[in-house]
């Protein structure tokens, strides 16, 4: 445990004020001082220092406070590399249990980015996305789950731009994607039925962390008849693995889809790896 130095107690005050201002923006000094249990003068001094650092700013002609611009960069996504490591056993279990190919994907801009996959042993099956491959959000099991279970404002922003890319997806229309999104939200899992090819369909589920943030999607791709005849079983198996992955340290830290370092696929494009009992080499 750290010693309770004057540093520690001053930083305690900073944390209390930062949290209070961020959680209930638009309040005055009096209310902030009351709720943080700080004397009026101390609260003012902390607020002034945080305002200089631009972690807090004064709004409404100087009388009330809100989080400053610097705090926007506090948002984190789950680290793709950590997610991939944490998800590997679950992908292998899904492939072994179902015999089909299981995939892990994350949202990256307007795309779902495939981070990893495990191939099932069933001898006839579709050629799935490779790790590192991208496909527009709303397309395929993972992409549909990521769109349907994104924060609503963010999903709407994507749906506004999706028509610009529909030329790449001749089987889909905006209406079809909206219908699939609505159905996914209703069912709790996304069914992408023959989005890209005849006879190939996928089911996807969101991976949510303890804070309810969708950090990734798990999906299973298979032949349509094989998939639909076992839809309940597959959705359940996916949901179990998604819950397990959502409880891992890799998923825990994410506050949402925002932020991220330099480039979007800095971590993505590893060589494809096999899990479970071999594959369809």
């Amino acid at each position: 445990m750290p010693r309770k130095t004057s540093d520690t107690s001053a930083i305690d005050k900073v944390c209390r004020v930062l949290r209070r201002v961020g959680e209930q923006p638009g309040d005055r000094l009096t209310e902030i001082a009351r709720d943080t249990g700080l004397p009026w003068g101390t609260a003012l001094r902390v607020l002034d220092a945080l305002t200089r650092e631009r972690f807090v700013e004064r709004i409404n002609p100087g009388k009330t406070y809100a989080s400053g611009p610097e705090t926007v960069a506090f948002a984190r996504r789950a680290s793709p590399e950590e997610l991939r490591v944490a998800a590997a056993p679950g992908l292998a279990r899904l492939a072994r249990l179902l015999g089909d190919t299981a995939l892990l994907s994350v949202a990256s801009g307007l795309d779902a980015l495939c981070l990893d996959r495990a191939q099932g042993a069933f001898p006839v099956g579709p050629v799935s996305l490779q790790p590192g491959a991208r496909r527009m959000l709303g397309v395929g099991g993972g992409g549909l789950a990521l769109l349907a279970f994104a924060p609503p404002a963010r999903a709407e922003a994507c749906l506004e731009v999706i028509p610009l890319r529909l030329a790449d997806h001749p089987r889909l229309t905006l209406e079809r994607i909206r219908e699939d999104v609505a159905a996914a939200r209703r069912d709790g899992h996304a069914l992408a039925q023959e989005h890209s090819h005849d006879r190939v369909s996928a089911i996807g589920v969101p991976v949510r962390n303890a804070d309810g943030v969708t950090v990734a999607a798990l999906s299973v791709v298979s032949l349509t008849d094989r998939l639909l005849s076992r839809r309940g079983e597959i959705a359940l198996a996916l949901a179990e693995e998604a819950e397990r992955l959502g409880r891992t340290e890799a998923a825990a830290g994410a506050s949402g889809p925002w932020a991220g370092p330099g480039g979007p696929e800095a971590v993505a494009a590893g060589a494809p790896r096999r899990h479970g009992r071999g594959g369809r080499g």
Binding site: G22, T71, V72, R76, S255
Partner: peptide, 16 residues
């Protein structure tokens, strides 16, 4: 790393 709680601080500010 910053926590989810920290990550949400900026959402209600003007830059957020």
């Amino acid at each position: 790393a910053l926590s989810p709680l920290a990550g949400r601080l900026g959402q209600a500010g003007r830059a957020g």
